[in-house]
Computed example of a mutant assay.
Amino acid sequence: MTIGDLPLIGRWLQTPAVREWWIDANGQPADPIGEDNLDDPDVAMWIVSSRSSPFAFIQDYDPHAWPDHHFGHLPLRSRGIDQFIGVQELLGYGHDPAFITAYVDRLHTGGAPVIGTDPHPTNARAIRAYQKAWFQSKEERLTECGPCFLMEHAKRAE
């Protein structure tokens, strides 16, 4: 993701399906993704495209970069992920599990032993998408980010 993608991300963050779940610990809209986020060495952000058409956002981060993070128990080099589809017309067609699976495979190939994600416990669409991408349900927990349903994807033995 580049600085040129920020207006697109800003528009996507205003769509109802994204705004409902991209929230802070108090249930309020999360801070917008800005230029300062692009410079964070512990986070990698990407625009997901199909046929040169951008339709989604995904990021991965080092959970060990934050003290007491709820994925701090994962082995070193593990990553956390967050994602959303920004083009509302593409919701409900199975795109989430497809690009999540491809991205998780890429992270595992790069050396990440476990990938964690933490959708809101009532976000059934996200939980189903992660389950279809082979994430295992762990537990519901109140975290520093608010209520989360913790899920993990371990690298498969080859």
Rank of each mutant, 00 (worst) to 15 (best):
residue 2 T to C: 11
residue 3 I to A: 15
residue 6 L to P: 11
residue 6 L to Q: 13
residue 9 I to W: 08
residue 14 Q to D: 14
residue 15 T to S: 11
residue 17 A to V: 03
residue 18 V to K: 05
residue 18 V to I: 09
residue 19 R to F: 03
residue 20 E to P: 00
residue 22 W to V: 07
residue 22 W to C: 02
residue 23 I to T: 12
residue 23 I to Y: 01
residue 23 I to W: 01
residue 23 I to E: 04
residue 26 N to L: 14
residue 27 G to D: 07
residue 28 Q to I: 00
residue 29 P to T: 02
residue 30 A to E: 09
residue 34 G to A: 05
residue 39 D to F: 12
residue 41 P to R: 06
residue 45 M to W: 09
residue 46 W to H: 15
residue 59 Q to I: 09
residue 60 D to W: 08
residue 60 D to E: 10
residue 63 P to H: 05
residue 65 A to R: 04
residue 65 A to K: 03
residue 66 W to G: 09
residue 66 W to L: 15
residue 68 D to P: 00
residue 71 F to Q: 05
residue 73 H to E: 11
residue 73 H to D: 13
residue 74 L to I: 04
residue 74 L to D: 08
residue 75 P to Q: 08
residue 76 L to M: 11
residue 77 R to F: 10
residue 81 I to K: 03
residue 82 D to R: 01
residue 84 F to Y: 03
residue 84 F to A: 02
residue 85 I to K: 06
residue 87 V to T: 06
residue 87 V to I: 07
residue 92 G to A: 12
residue 93 Y to S: 14
residue 93 Y to H: 15
residue 94 G to S: 09
residue 95 H to R: 13
residue 95 H to A: 15
residue 96 D to A: 15
residue 97 P to L: 10
residue 98 A to N: 06
residue 98 A to Y: 03
residue 100 I to C: 10
residue 101 T to P: 00
residue 102 A to V: 10
residue 105 D to A: 12
residue 106 R to S: 14
residue 107 L to M: 02
residue 112 A to V: 05
residue 118 D to Q: 01
residue 118 D to G: 07
residue 122 T to I: 09
residue 123 N to W: 10
residue 125 R to F: 07
residue 126 A to E: 02
residue 126 A to L: 05
residue 126 A to T: 06
residue 128 R to A: 15
residue 129 A to Y: 08
residue 132 K to G: 10
residue 135 F to S: 03
residue 140 E to F: 06
residue 144 E to Y: 02
residue 146 G to V: 04
residue 146 G to Q: 01
residue 148 C to K: 12
residue 150 L to P: 00
residue 151 M to A: 08
residue 153 H to G: 08
residue 153 H to L: 08
residue 154 A to T: 10
residue 154 A to Q: 07
residue 156 R to M: 14
residue 157 A to W: 05
residue 158 E to I: 08
